[in-house]
């Protein structure tokens, strides 16, 4: 009996309280940067593609909606030849972002992706790649990794000694 009265009271009380829901789409709520919406590929601080085509996001994806192919530029830098996300499958779980060792793939607060034709939900690299660094501004994988790329030879990454001279007899 008491609980029923309390419920009635609660319902009544809510009539006079400010609404949590908003009149979307006329009114747009402010979303936090870490909200998990449309996925982008970002660039490193030097403006190069961050993605190194390591396939970790693809394997982490629980619905298998990421497919890509590795290729290399003439200096040996790995990057994706194609990178495809089928957003009609994506569940915005963010596992890909968590798996990414280069901060390349990031989820954004944009979720307005409705399409009349499902085929338009398939995004290729040109649709995904943005010009900036996204949420993470500083990280540049190739500055840390040991692989040689254009304008970074062996020994020039962070915390590296110059290459060993195998011919020396000095200790």
């Amino acid at each position: 009996m008491f609980s029923q009265l309390r419920s009635l009271w609660e319902v009544l009380r809510h009539t006079f309280i400010k609404h949590d829901t908003v009149e979307y789409p006329e009114q747009k709520p402010a979303l936090f940067p870490r909200y998990r919406g449309r996925i982008i590929l970002t660039r490193d601080p030097d403006g190069e593609e961050r993605c190194v085509a390591c396939n970790l996001c693809a394997v982490a994806c629980p619905v298998d909606c990421i497919a890509l192919q590795k290729t290399e530029d003439e200096h040996g830098r790995w990057y994706p030849e194609f990178f495809r996300i089928n957003f009609s499958r994506c569940i915005m779980c963010g596992f890909c972002e968590e798996a990414c060792p280069t901060n390349a793939i990031q989820l954004t607060p944009d979720f307005e992706m409705c399409e009349y034709d499902r085929q338009n939900m398939v995004y290729e690299k040109q649709h995904l790649l943005i010009d900036g660094t996204g949420k993470y501004h500083d990280y540049n994988f190739y500055r840390v990794a040991g692989m040689t790329i254009g304008n970074k030879a062996k020994g020039q990454a962070e915390n590296e000694y110059p290459p060993v001279n195998v011919k020396t007899l000095l200790p």
């Binding site: 298998d64 497919a67 890509l68 089928n86 398939v122």
Partner: peptide, 16 residues
């Protein structure tokens, strides 16, 4: 069992 990309690899041709 970790094969990836099943729902995206052919999606450029046909999304289903």
């Amino acid at each position: 069992h970790r094969y990836s990309g099943r729902t995206a690899m052919h999606a450029n041709i046909k999304v289903s």
